[in-house]
């Protein structure tokens, strides 16, 4: 029986590159408030790193690490987090008010809640995009369904 996923070369390279892609995504997210990028771009990059895994190792291997329930839970968590940050502004009297100290410009710890917002968006977008990919990949064409397990 054929092994799932692509050839050995692809798998080997993927093992090396995936962590780098993931790390780059995290960098983009955390520096979103001082350089171009942010939650959406970083989330997309991180989702792509997981999609990369799915392509190289086949669906089953990747879904072992991150199954569909976990993905949808993370997505909702991201949404809730963003909602919570917006509600946090009510402590200062106004919805969406940036109440944390702003810090010094061009420093990593600055700009108050923007960093937290970026992280929430990253969770939402990353998980959401990956969920879309899984959902579309899981839908098999009828012809395939006959031979596939289900």
């Amino acid at each position: 029986m054929k092994e799932a996923g692509m050839s050995l070369i692809v798998k080997r390279i993927t093992k090396i590159t995936v962590s780098l892609i993931f790390l780059y995504g995290v960098y983009i997210v955390l520096h979103g408030h001082i350089t171009p990028g942010g939650g959406f771009a970083g989330g997309v990059i991180i989702a792509l790193s997981f999609i990369h895994l799915v392509l190289a190792f086949g669906k089953e291997a990747a879904l072992k690490r991150l199954n569909e329930t976990a993905v949808s839970a993370i997505e909702s968590l991201g949404g809730l987090l963003f909602w919570g940050i917006a509600l946090l502004g009510l402590l200062g009297g106004v919805f969406f008010l940036n109440i944390l100290p702003k810090g010094r410009i061009f420093h990593l710890f600055s700009s108050g809640t923007i960093v937290l917002c970026n992280i929430a968006i990253f969770l939402k977008v990353g998980a959401g995009l990956f969920a879309i990919f899984i959902a579309l990949a899981a839908m098999r064409m009828p012809a395939e369904k006959k031979e596939g397990k289900k």
Binding site: V125, I132, A135, L136, M139, M141, P142
Partner: peptide, 22 residues
């Protein structure tokens, strides 16, 4: 981002349509 959402939904519906109508 909105376009992405709409596009994903559209593709999903198209795949389902293909399942029904071939």
């Amino acid at each position: 981002v909105i376009g992405l959402g709409v596009m994903a939904l559209m593709v999903a519906i198209t795949v389902r349509l293909y399942e029904k109508y071939r």
